[in-house]
Design a protein around this nucleic acid. Structure first.
Lengths: 206, 206, 206, 206
DNA sequence: TATGAATGAGGCTTCATTCAT
DNA sequence: GATGAATGAAGCCTCATTCAT
């Protein structure tokens, strides 16, 4: 765990350049999230990164690999976010509100269900396992927060896995737009409040 | 496994077979639901129908057309089902339970969000309108049932659109399988009961 | 050569309806002339005629047959027009002018060269013979007029076949439009006059 | 007959072969000239080049692009030839003769009219502009030679644009073959002489 | 580390043609 | 005489992937 030997003084400017592999992963993640696995081509990724397709293949052996890595990393990041937000020292409802709001503000709708479905046909079973694993861990982070709250007596005891999934499911309501592009509530704040209230009731609170 | 190749030309009108167009629409609907728009090819559809691709194109000018029609028809059917089940003369909670159960029993997970996302990238704006229109109407059917119940005093007054969307969103929880292919609850009945209870609380009932 | 027995009196209205076969031929001729053999589909023809493809096939065994017939009939008509115009009792130059003008007024550019080239790949050799035959006869009509004029002393003796082809070739100049859609001369009359003058000189007149 | 399939990936840079892009353009030009736009498939081009279709698409995004480029390059070459031949220091008639002969010797009949017609239906308006532009410039080269000759007093003053187009139009006469495959004159030399003489008269020379 | 050049496989779509009615 | 339903063959184009440099 020791840091590598590094020259003294201020690092050179070009050290700030993100390594190519990271650029690719970040760009890919965004593109896949925005448009889905099938629609995005390796060329799309390459072009957005300012490199060639061959370079992408230098870092990721297949498209499926790139996708898997992108999704897994993303779920890890979300899990970390859940941890961060939900371990704050505030009433659970407030923490849920914060998380919900953060989630709904992210422009891209993270439709995990959809991604898993698209992936099923194209990924190796090992890759699917990886994704599923990351997904499960993500939910577990939420579950844990609920379990804690149940033990604290903050909320009634109930099935925490159901609670975790229900929360994420309800968040998708926030992304709905009708035929005229109207969301259900005009502001994100209102949207978030309503969803969290609904969820809070659902948990059995009065 | 499939029918032998038919001879050229118009087939004899022997048996009272389902008209080819219907066969195509039904098969396409199932395939699209199971695997998504991008993954399914026109050839997949054709082969499953025992006809050639050209025949599929005889009835549907493009893949996007076929998809749109399939989705719209499906949403119309669901809407009808909602009507049928929700207009029965029973307590609302029972009716919700019935609908939820029917929905969760359908083998294919009807992930509307996912479909709309895939559609966005590949359909004409006119086709998107059609799909969105059908989707909205579907939700309206649910909303109406909620509105009635609020007026009856069966449930507290609240935002019916939110209620409708929340219900559908919660249903997706029933399709979740973890990395070991385990659903959250082992039986559909239990699953349905838990989801409807959660929802029922969410609506503000005590 | 006796006329068929026909009922006395005025024929019924519906006798005025052009027989379907003729409609097809006429429509096909126009479409092929306007857009070429390959581009026009049997469906295009059928739709413009208000019948189905199968009907077109009822009258013409193949697309190549329809095309051949259309082109041959057209060349026969042109040949007749040449006869009519060129056998009038006026100075040759006037007659040439008239024919040229009639030709240039027809909106469609009858680019026989182009048609023969397109046809070569797609027609049977017998069909090609038919077309070539009709084309040759068409030119012969012009040649004959030139031969007559040479014998009359109206124009110097020269190679009549060259004369006939040169005339038709020069007419194509009238259809030229530059990148800004400008023809070489602004009015058809001026165009015709200039071309015929040029031709007239070419024949060796002073 | 053709090269064996190449292995995947970048080929060894062995011999000083013509760059693939040039090979494709040259082959395509010849094929399009010989048989027309619609008849030639991208596969035809690829096979004649000993590469796969995908390779052709690597260099040209669409068939229309390939065609446009082929035609434009060809017209640029012709224009250069016009320049070269017509700027020699000889009497105009001799120069015209030379150009005509060179043109008629080229085995393929360059039927510009036909190509422009085929193009109209299939090319984007931008591509059409490109082709038209190249065509116009080609004619302008001829016009300029005529203008010079008029100013020299070598030929009478007349409309140079008409002169340029007439010349090219008359050249097509040289490619005519009748139903028995007979050209109008048996030898190219005689053909050329007759056409140029006709043209020379047409210009108003005595 | 990065890329340019190439391929194979496959997807969408069109179209001439056929045939029972 | 006319048509609706179907097919087979082919054409355009895309894309994940490979490999020598």
């Amino acid at each position: 765990m020791q840091r590598e030997h590094r020259p003294l003084g201020r690092p050179r400017q070009d050290l700030k350049e993100k390594p190519t592999k990271n650029v690719i992963l970040d760009v890919a993640t965004r593109l896949f999230l925005e448009q889905g696995y099938q629609v995005i081509t390796m060329d799309d990724v390459a072009k957005k990164c300012g490199v060639t397709k061959a370079t992408v293949y230098y870092y990721y052996k297949t498209k499926a690999d790139l996708f898997t890595d992108a999704m897994v990393q993303m779920m890890i990041r979300i899990r970390r976010r859940i941890f961060d937000i939900l371990s704050a020292d505030k009433p659970l409802k407030e923490r849920l509100f914060e998380f919900a709001k953060a989630h709904l503000q992210a422009t891209v709708d993270i439709d995990l269900n959809g991604f898993m479905k698209e992936a099923t046909t194209s990924l190796s079973s090992e890759q699917l396992q990886q994704m599923k694993g990351a997904e499960d861990k993500m939910y577990e982070a939420l579950e844990q927060a609920l379990i804690n709250a149940m033990e604290n007596g903050e909320i009634p005891k109930s099935h925490p896995q159901l609670g975790a999934h229900s929360f994420v499911a309800l968040l998708t309501v926030g992304n709905y737009k009708d035929a005229d592009q109207q969301p259900i509530f005009p502001s994100i704040d209102e949207m978030t409040k309503q969803i969290v209230d609904f969820y809070w009731n659902g948990l059995g609170n009065e």
